[in-house]
Design a protein around this nucleic acid. Sequence first.
DNA 1: TTGTATGCGTTATCAA
DNA 2: TTGATAACGCATACAA
Lengths: 331, 331
Amino acid sequence: MGRRSTAKEVAEAAGVSKWTVIRAFTPGASIAEASREKVMEAARRLNYSPNLLARSLATNLTRQVAAFVDDFANPHKLPFLATLTEILQSEGLVVTLININRHFDHVHALLNADQRQVDAVVLCGTAFRDETLQDKRLGPGTPPTFVLARDSQIDGVPAITCDVETAMAEICDYLAAKPYRRPGFMSGPRTLSTALGRQRLFSDFWRNRGVPAIPDIPAADYSIGAGAAAMRAYLAATPADQRLDLLMCENDVLAFGAMDVIRGEFHLRVPEDIAVAGFDNTTFAASPAYDLTSYEQPIEAMVRTVADMILDRAEKRTVYLKGRLVPRRSA
Amino acid sequence: MGRRSTAKEVAEAAGVSKWTVIRAFTPGASIAEASREKVMEAARRLNYSPNLLARSLATNLTRQVAAFVDDFANPHKLPFLATLTEILQSEGLVVTLININRHFDHVHALLNADQRQVDAVVLCGTAFRDETLQDKRLGPGTPPTFVLARDSQIDGVPAITCDVETAMAEICDYLAAKPYRRPGFMSGPRTLSTALGRQRLFSDFWRNRGVPAIPDIPAADYSIGAGAAAMRAYLAATPADQRLDLLMCENDVLAFGAMDVIRGEFHLRVPEDIAVAGFDNTTFAASPAYDLTSYEQPIEAMVRTVADMILDRAEKRTVYLKGRLVPRRSA
DNA sequence: TTGTATGCGTTATCAA
DNA sequence: TTGATAACGCATACAA
């Protein structure tokens, strides 16, 4: 029953050659108006539309972009995916969502993307070591690759990310104007944490202000549970008079976990006892339940930049875009 | 530089015909061990791997599945996407994420999926009217389509969803055992709300118990903001002594918005003044900030079922799977 | 076990 | 403007 009809079939129905059919479906092609109408009529009757697969094989362009994601626990991925798909779709590209996990790592996924001939690969804040992208199994022919929402030092792999220097300066200036004296930082997994560069900038800022030691509270991963566990361990191990009074978290999700424990388990107040700040300005940061001071990444600008690079409308190079501080009650 | 090498090139390098190369890469093919090794060696040298695009054109199988999503504001989509991608990838399939929006509607997306020859389409809880899927522009040849996480009455389009009858019975029994007397329901957009079937079952339950009127509090969409707005309007318009004391929300996100307003703006207590229950058991439902009684959908089972149907390992028919009540403090 | 011919549905290029 | 030939890289069927 429902087989797709082909240009050849339409050609027969319209009494022309199949190339004329193709032309009728090619925007700039030179074709007589009469022929075009005949073709379109037949096409409508046969319910014809071009087979994009065959087109891709012939043009060497799939108009498909692979987006790698390895952290589905973070609700912050959603706005990124929403924006990425929307903007790329508006350019006629489609996004294939690749779940990077134990069974399907970066090398695997890159190889697969190459085999499927995608036009580009976008690493959406995934955690990888630089060596990974230089694996020998990856030929020099792999698709153009971009790193979104984290830094990268690999050349040939542009990073499109939030300008974290400005961001942390803004955040720190804002916090330093308040009476907090013992700042601490909650970080995520080392690989990604380093690539984000937030911790170093935070620590440097306070060190320059004469704060001797800035405690690091390491979370196992970027999830509410991990943030909660890290905070629980810290509070349990630290005498009340030695605790920090300001906790900067690498992102909102960690901050949520920390706040849950601070308030729910240790019955301390935010911000009076411990102030908390996050990063990403997740939806829930705005909720009165958290009211979390956070920092909004310029998602749309970042995605537009990636799109421009993918479509060769912009030079492929690392770019830092400015975000926006969103002050709230938590700090 | 980095052009992919082809079977033909490997064949020349290995001194065999290109068909032998193909065989070496075809699992069940009959080929001499010696030839296979020669081929593999050459393939390694030339960094060859089969072009899946060309394969798809020849086999009529893309091993690509399109997933339609239209509600990126709901964090609940993330576990669905995570599970869908992970399970399908483990079967060698890849998921293309289609953002259904104003500029790219269901018909558009379906047409496009068809042109790209995807093996299947999964509507992930998207809001559509049944007629949409029967649009005349969609030939009879469109890919097998499945509806995930909502009901569907279209024949030929199986729905894989949570068994809402059992779910609502469980929820209502649980709530009825508590001293609530004036239940109300917060619903989302009509199309989807109806397809979810939650409101009707909830209302029926209480009507059968002699509750005369069950107020409907309609939210514009499934977002925290919409839930908050709906609750704000209701509380503002309803005298304190006539207010409901139990609010069942169509999903968690609405419940979060409602709770934010109940507590943050009207300074009422949950559950003492108004108890709240949700649906989906989102990550944040477990947080002490909300501690929301909710209902967990059997996501993994649902996705496995879809996968089995896509891979023709299970009969393509509507299936209802049982979820799990997660009682917490909010109700 | 291996090689050959043919087809998948387009696009690119050239000739008419 | 139109038709024809070749090519994209693989798979299928058949013959050797």
